[in-house]
Amino acid sequence: MLWNVDHTLVDVTIVLRDAYAAAFREVTGRPLVRLAPARGRPDSEVIFETLALNGVVAEDDHLPAFTEALARAFADRRDRIAEQGRAMPGAREALAAVARLEGTVQSVLTGTIRSNAVLMLGAFGLDEHIDVEVGGYGEEVYPKATLIQVARRRAEARYGVPFPASATVLVGDSTRDVQAARFGGVAMIAVASGGSTAAELAEAGADVVLDDLCDTEWLVAAVTRLTSPAGHVAG
């Protein structure tokens, strides 16, 4: 089970925007005027677009420098994450409910860089049932669809058992997440808690669309159905 983090499990928009502004100033020496919207994209894409929107010509060292500065800026604000952010409704209960499914490993597939994703989850006690070692993160060079395969291979190496695409579910809140699931050949549970509407998520091809994560019984039933031989969409 692979979870998107931002706007699926947590919402830390205020702190993250502030960290981006601090990182931008550190890297460019200028104040941030416009921050590119995430829309399910990895931090690497957001960084490049943010530079362009603010009239900065990206150079080879900009991405690693910005990524490192963003990690430091967010870590410096770790005490504000729980104060100014929130766990999404039902997130904690959903993770606990899925953890009770026999043989299930939960990790993340997120556009957020790893250090920030770990801080986000930990701030709200959502890391108890998640193995962050086998996830896919925003600083990695692979597109999200490929990161699904990377995460599956990492889980197989760590746990010594196969995790086929047919037994993998991605949970996310954007149409980009849905597209990644389709290309990656895994089932998709979409949550209309981010920038994409329920109609947009359904049209993009999500197998299941939820308003939130509060109905854990329905979530578990959906996971079970989608990972059964008869319930999974071929891919």
Results as ranks from 00 to 15, higher is better:
H7E: 06
T8L: 13
V10M: 11
V12Q: 10
V12N: 14
V15E: 12
A22W: 00
E26Y: 03
V27S: 12
T28S: 14
R39Q: 15
G40N: 06
P42C: 07
P42Q: 07
D43L: 06
F48A: 14
L51F: 14
D61M: 11
D61V: 09
T67C: 11
L70Q: 10
A75M: 03
R77I: 06
R78K: 11
D79Y: 07
Q84Y: 12
G85M: 03
R86L: 12
A87T: 05
M88W: 08
M88R: 11
A97F: 05
R100T: 07
E102H: 04
G103F: 06
G111R: 01
T112K: 08
R114Q: 15
A117R: 09
V118C: 13
L119M: 09
G122D: 14
L126W: 01
L126I: 13
E133N: 00
G138F: 02
E140M: 14
K144N: 03
L147H: 09
I148C: 11
R154H: 01
A157F: 08
R158G: 09
A165I: 08
A165Q: 07
D173Y: 04
D173E: 03
S174N: 05
S174W: 03
T175F: 10
A180G: 13
R182D: 06
G185Q: 10
A187Q: 14
A190V: 02
V191Q: 02
A192I: 01
S193K: 09
T197R: 10
A202M: 04
G205F: 01
V209N: 01
L213I: 00
E217S: 14
V220A: 03
A221N: 15
S228G: 13
P229C: 08
A230Q: 13
G231D: 13
